[in-house]
C-alpha cells in the first residue's frame, strides 16, 4: 500500500500510462496475495427464504471473478450483498461476515456510503441519470464534495476515456445521456462508476440488455480495467464467463458448489452439477 503510494508520487509527472503500469507491477507483487473480498460463512434470508447459505469465497485483487449459475441461484443477491445494496429490501436478514480488505463491511466504523464509494457497481440495465453526459460522470465526485471545475473536467475526461467512450461523446458532453444507445449508456454508467476511482467494481449482468457488438466492447473494456481494478461480475452467459474471467464461482440454490480457476471450472469441474450446468444440460 505504502509502496504503491510512494511510487505514484514519484511518477506524478510521468504520463498516465506509465503510472498505471508501475502501479500494476508493484501492486501485483504486494497485493495479490491478499484477497479483496472474503465471505465467511455468510447467510442471507429474504423473510423466511434462506437465499444464501454458508457462503465462503475469496476474491483476488486485479482479477476478474465471475459468478455463474441458473436464475434464482442467489448470484445477484450475493453481489448486491458485497456493497450492502441488498439491504434496500426491508425484509433482508444476514448472518456471518464479509471482509473487504480485512475489515468487516458490517463494521459500525465503516458507513455504507464509504463502502459504496470504494466498491462501485454497474447494473443489469443501463441506468444513467436524466442529466447530461458530463453531469452523469461528475455525479459521484460532486456528491463527495468536489466542486473544482478543473478537477471535475479532468475526472470526466479520464473516466470516459477509461470506459472507452470518450471519442464517441467528447463533442456532446452536455447532451442528455438518454439520447445514447444502450451500449453507450452502459459505458457511460461504467465511466460514472470509474469516476470516483473505486477499488472494486461489481457488475451485475452488465451486458444482458445489450446487443453482441456492445457486449464485445464492454468485455474488451473489462480486460483493460482489470489492470487497475478488481472486478466481480455476475453473468448467466457461460461463454462470457469463460472468455473474460480469471476465476469462476458456480452458485446453485443458494450454495457455492464450486469455485476455481475459470479453465478448471469449464474444462474439468469436480462437481457433477457444475459439469451439467457448464455443458448446458440444465439452467
Amino acid at each position: 500500500m505504502t509502496l504503491t503510494k510512494v511510487k505514484e508520487e514519484k511518477n506524478m509527472k510521468t504520463t498516465h500510462d506509465e503510472t498505471v503500469q508501475e502501479r500494476n507491477f508493484e501492486g501485483r507483487i504486494a497485493e495479490q496475495a491478499q484477497p479483496v473480498f472474503q465471505a465467511k460463512d455468510f447467510n442471507l434470508w429474504y423473510g423466511d427464504n434462506h437465499a444464501l447459505q454458508n457462503i465462503d469465497l475469496d476474491f483476488n485483487r486485479n482479477e476478474i471473478s465471475a459468478i455463474i449459475g441458473p436464475s434464482g441461484c442467489g448470484k445477484s443477491t450475493f453481489i448486491k450483498a458485497l456493497n450492502r445494496m441488498v439491504e434496500l429490501v426491508p425484509i433482508v436478514r444476514t448472518e456471518g461476515d464479509i471482509l473487504y480488505r480485512n475489515q468487516s463491511i458490517f463494521d459500525k466504523s465503516l458507513t455504507v456510503e464509504e463502502l459504496r464509494t470504494k466498491v462501485g457497481m454497474v447494473f443489469q440495465k443501463p441506468n444513467p441519470f436524466p442529466k447530461s453526459i458530463y453531469d452523469n460522470v461528475a455525479y459521484g465526485a460532486r456528491v463527495h464534495g468536489i466542486r473544482n471545475k478543473k478537477v471535475l473536467d479532468q475526472v470526466v475526461e479520464k473516466s470516459l476515456k477509461g470506459a472507452a467512450i470518450w471519442d464517441e461523446v467528447k463533442d456532446r458532453l452536455n447532451d442528455n445521456a438518454y439520447g445514447l444507445s444502450g451500449g453507450q449508456q452502459q459505458r457511460i454508467c461504467i465511466a460514472r462508476a470509474l469516476a470516483i476511482e473505486p477499488d472494486v467494481i461489481l457488475m451485475d449482468e452488465p451486458t444482458s440488455a445489450l446487443d453482441p457488438i456492445s457486449t464485445t466492447k464492454i468485455e474488451d473494456l473489462m480486460q483493460e480495467l482489470k489492470k487497475d481494478y478488481s472486478i466481480i461480475i455476475v453473468t448467466h452467459n457461460m461463454q462470457q464467463a469463460a472468455r473474460i474471467s480469471d476465476r469462476t464461482a458456480f452458485f446453485y440454490q443458494g450454495h457455492v458448489i464450486e469455485y476455481d480457476r475459470t479453465n478448471v471450472i469449464f474444462e474439468k469441474p469436480k462437481d457433477q452439477r457444475t459439469e451439467d450446468y457448464v455443458s448446458g444440460r440444465f439452467g
Binding site: E8, H144, I146, Q154, V155, E197
Partner: peptide, 15 residues
C-alpha cells in the same frame, strides 16, 4: 494536472 480523486474524496471528511 493529475488529480488523485481517491485521495481527494478520502480527505473530504465533511461526513
Amino acid at each position: 494536472n493529475d488529480y488523485n480523486i481517491r485521495e481527494m474524496i478520502d480527505n473530504k471528511k465533511g461526513r
